[in-house]
Amino acid sequence: MSRARAISVQEITGKFKELETPELGHDINLTLVLSNGMPSDKTITVNFNANVTGYTRRIMRNFMKQSVSISMASKEEKEIPFKIPYSKYIQRLLDDKVVEVTALCKWDDTGKVLISKIITLKTPSLNIKVLGDAVINNPLSAEITFTNPLNEPLSDCRVLAEGSGLIKQQIEKKISLKPKEKTTVTIEFKPYMRGSKQLNVVVFCTKTFTLKDFLIIVVKKS
């Protein structure tokens, strides 16, 4: 009776690993870890690509390419650094702040493997705090606090606030921020409907980043 014999897979494999949590406003530092499982030495060409995309990945815009050639002995593992400078991606990000990195690795005439990683950049928090009780037709204030995550000043930021039953006309405030500056913006409004209402806040910095958050406010009867 014949018996099937397990065959070991001999190939080149790889994966990306992050050196730290990628944050908006900082360089993205990755390492591609390659393993040569082949029985012979190989010369591998690695073509890196960085694309801005979104959670749905319907949009894909390439903004950086880089190629490197390496030699690997049989059964050897190597780490290849790949750095995406902040200046390369900051003007191209979509609202989701997602970057896809791929490495197409080729060897011999036909051997190839595609390795990819999706990176969601960590963004600064947007804190909304209501000052006092929300009572219908009474003035109410809210504080909006956030930090400029960049190492450069921002002179074109707008804070937008709206909410059905809370604000009849959208509130807009223009501000400037120093590098890494933390700021608090105060808005005032009169809730005009009682019940549970949602205050929506957007901090929009042209061509740089957008922060969004909301707060549920329970408006009481006067």
Score class of each variant (00 low, 15 high):
residue 210 T to L: 11
residue 92 R to T: 06
residue 148 N to S: 11
residue 113 V to C: 03
residue 38 M to Y: 01
residue 76 E to I: 04
residue 11 E to A: 10
residue 202 V to S: 11
residue 111 G to C: 03
residue 167 I to H: 04
residue 200 N to T: 09
residue 201 V to T: 08
residue 46 V to P: 03
residue 167 I to R: 04
residue 35 S to N: 06
residue 38 M to P: 00
residue 187 I to Q: 09
residue 207 K to T: 12
residue 112 K to V: 00
residue 206 T to A: 11
residue 97 K to Q: 13
residue 52 V to M: 10
residue 54 G to Y: 00
residue 191 P to L: 05
residue 160 L to F: 07
residue 128 I to C: 02
residue 209 F to E: 03
residue 56 T to G: 01
residue 196 S to E: 14
residue 163 G to R: 02
residue 202 V to Q: 11
residue 170 Q to G: 07
residue 121 L to F: 09
residue 87 S to D: 14
residue 192 Y to K: 05
residue 210 T to H: 00
residue 24 L to N: 08
residue 58 R to T: 14
residue 165 G to P: 02
residue 57 R to N: 14
residue 85 P to K: 13
residue 163 G to C: 07
residue 95 D to K: 12
residue 18 E to I: 10
residue 174 K to Q: 15
residue 67 S to G: 04
residue 161 A to G: 00
residue 159 V to D: 11
residue 169 Q to E: 13
residue 151 N to K: 14
residue 108 D to R: 10
residue 36 N to F: 04
residue 58 R to D: 15
residue 197 K to A: 03
residue 88 K to G: 00
residue 30 L to F: 07
residue 73 A to T: 07
residue 215 L to C: 00
residue 52 V to K: 09
residue 168 K to N: 07
residue 185 V to F: 06
residue 111 G to F: 05
residue 185 V to P: 03
residue 52 V to S: 03
residue 181 E to K: 05
residue 176 S to R: 13
residue 148 N to E: 05
residue 24 L to S: 10
residue 168 K to S: 13
residue 30 L to V: 11
residue 48 F to R: 08
residue 158 R to T: 10
residue 65 K to C: 01
residue 17 K to Y: 11
residue 101 V to P: 07
residue 82 F to S: 07
residue 219 V to L: 05
residue 37 G to D: 09
residue 61 R to N: 15
residue 194 R to M: 10
residue 53 T to R: 06
residue 192 Y to F: 15
residue 170 Q to P: 02
residue 125 S to G: 14
residue 20 E to L: 05
residue 174 K to I: 02
residue 18 E to T: 11
residue 163 G to M: 05
residue 221 K to S: 12
residue 193 M to R: 12
residue 8 S to H: 08
residue 12 I to Q: 06
residue 25 G to D: 10
residue 146 F to M: 09
residue 201 V to R: 04
residue 88 K to L: 11
residue 73 A to V: 00
residue 4 A to L: 13
residue 65 K to F: 04
residue 97 K to D: 14
residue 36 N to R: 02
residue 69 S to T: 15
residue 154 L to C: 12
residue 79 E to P: 01
residue 126 L to Q: 08
residue 71 S to H: 13
residue 149 P to G: 08
residue 114 L to N: 14
residue 185 V to G: 04
residue 2 S to H: 12
residue 65 K to Y: 06
residue 148 N to D: 11
residue 124 P to Q: 08
residue 51 N to E: 13
residue 69 S to V: 09
residue 163 G to H: 02
residue 201 V to D: 07
residue 170 Q to Y: 01
residue 191 P to R: 09
residue 69 S to I: 04
residue 94 L to G: 08
residue 4 A to D: 12
residue 110 T to F: 03
residue 62 N to Y: 00
residue 203 V to K: 09
residue 220 K to Y: 02
residue 50 A to N: 07
residue 51 N to F: 15
residue 56 T to Y: 08
residue 86 Y to A: 11
residue 117 K to I: 09
residue 113 V to W: 01
residue 173 K to G: 00
residue 23 E to T: 10
residue 25 G to L: 07
residue 110 T to N: 13
residue 153 P to W: 02
residue 87 S to N: 14
residue 60 M to Y: 08
residue 82 F to V: 09
residue 138 N to R: 15
residue 200 N to V: 02
residue 83 K to D: 01
residue 58 R to V: 10
residue 166 L to D: 04
residue 125 S to Y: 05
residue 39 P to T: 10
residue 72 M to R: 05
residue 221 K to F: 05
residue 42 K to A: 07
residue 127 N to E: 12
residue 72 M to Q: 09
residue 51 N to K: 10
residue 143 E to S: 13
residue 26 H to N: 15
residue 38 M to T: 07
residue 75 K to G: 01
residue 215 L to F: 02
residue 176 S to T: 15
residue 82 F to R: 05
